Computed example of a mutant assay.
Amino acid sequence: MDELQNPYRPGAGTQPPALLGRDAYINHFGTLLRRALNGMPGKSVMPIGLRGVGKTVLLNRFTEIAENEGLAVAFIEAPETGDLRSLLTRSLRKILLTFDARKPSAKALKALRVLKSFQMQLPDGSSVSLDLDALAGTADSGVLSDDLTDLLVAAGEAAVERDTGILIAIDEVQYLTAEELGAAISAIHRTTQLNLPVVLVGAGLPQLPGLAGDSKSYAERLFEFPAIGSLNDSDARAALVVPAEAQGVTFTDDAIAALIAETAGYPYFVQEWGYHLWNHSQGPRIDLGDVDGVRTIVTDHLDRNFFLVRLDRLTPKEKEYLAAMAELGPGPHRSGDIAAALGVRVESVAPRRSGLITKGMIYSPAHGDTAFTVPLFGEFMMRTKGRA
């Protein structure tokens, strides 16, 4: 079939042709956003889940809703290096300059001066261009939680004056340092207490609630952490069928059953299979033979472009740890069982386990348990055993 007309869109955070199974989260976010604009901010949301379930897609949808409601949006992807102060400085500079350009005011000017103070504490000594004086004594203490609180309060007050709000969306929240995450939570806690229209949303891996709770004990009272999982069979079927039928292409029932089994309902895998099926099938009817015909192509593509790129970031010892997990079969697995499979004591591999959690490869669904953050990663490890 014509590749130019291929409706499937595999990618990192790429909007699929049909966003299915997420309506409840989207509607809930719209409500909390409008309440914040009405001076009643409350619990915000931080969707969590494994890789490939569509967390970033959902976060992008949140920002789209906010922009449609007239809010200013700062979208940040947290790096593993930890650089929240710099990222926020650049994002809020753009927002506050826009506020000031529309109609200069005391609140907008104050917020810009507070931002000038805030950016003076950038860890690498860099700065952003702001042709005004810093507001001495505000956001310049060097204590990130205090300084970020000063900045978001000032920004929120400027937003009120503009009869709008600010949405700060952070992807990969688990990569924030403990100090950065704690500071963000503290700052939003204060803006919420002051009924300012500043909303923080994020997305992260399953360990995020624990990290947030460790940073600030009251995090659970500020955020909801909805678990985003794979699509149910009905939604997975629709994600495949709806975009194809819009172009006159159909699937046989046995083809759909095979695809649901192959993808386990994970949205990213659904898009990958749909994309390659479209490009390698004659159409307009896709059957089980077509699915069988692209299995090697899809598997090889996922191995090289989804799984291996993550494995290549690891040390040999970390790879050994993941290989031992894979050998044990579908998880989660007890830490002691993994250590036993490696022939070592639990204590000796604890640093390896911690490093893999920090790198976002594994998480602990329950105390002492360990599981992959990447769906079907164990199968990949076994499939490429001896070659990784």
Score class of each variant (00 low, 15 high):
231 L>P: 04
234 S>V: 13
235 D>A: 06
235 D>M: 00
236 A>C: 14
238 A>S: 12
240 L>A: 10
243 P>C: 06
244 A>G: 05
244 A>D: 03
245 E>M: 08
246 A>F: 02
247 Q>M: 06
249 V>L: 10
253 D>G: 07
253 D>I: 02
254 D>Q: 10
254 D>T: 04
256 I>G: 02
256 I>V: 12
257 A>K: 07
258 A>F: 05
259 L>W: 11
263 T>W: 03
264 A>N: 14
264 A>H: 09
264 A>E: 13
265 G>S: 10
267 P>C: 07
268 Y>T: 06
271 Q>H: 11
272 E>R: 05
272 E>N: 04
273 W>G: 00
274 G>L: 00
274 G>Q: 06
275 Y>P: 00
275 Y>D: 03
276 H>S: 02
278 W>K: 01
279 N>F: 03
279 N>E: 14
283 G>H: 12
291 V>S: 03
294 V>R: 08
297 I>S: 06
301 H>E: 14
303 D>K: 08
305 N>P: 00
305 N>H: 11
309 V>G: 08
309 V>P: 11
310 R>L: 05
312 D>Y: 08
313 R>D: 12
315 T>R: 15
316 P>I: 09
318 E>C: 03
318 E>H: 09
321 Y>G: 05
323 A>N: 11
323 A>I: 09
326 A>M: 10
329 G>V: 07
333 H>T: 02
335 S>N: 07
335 S>L: 08
335 S>A: 12
337 D>T: 10
341 A>Q: 13
341 A>N: 14
342 L>C: 12
343 G>T: 02
345 R>P: 00
346 V>S: 11
348 S>Q: 10
352 R>Y: 14
357 I>E: 15
357 I>H: 07
357 I>A: 12
358 T>I: 09
358 T>C: 05
360 G>E: 14
361 M>F: 08
362 I>S: 06
363 Y>E: 00
364 S>H: 04
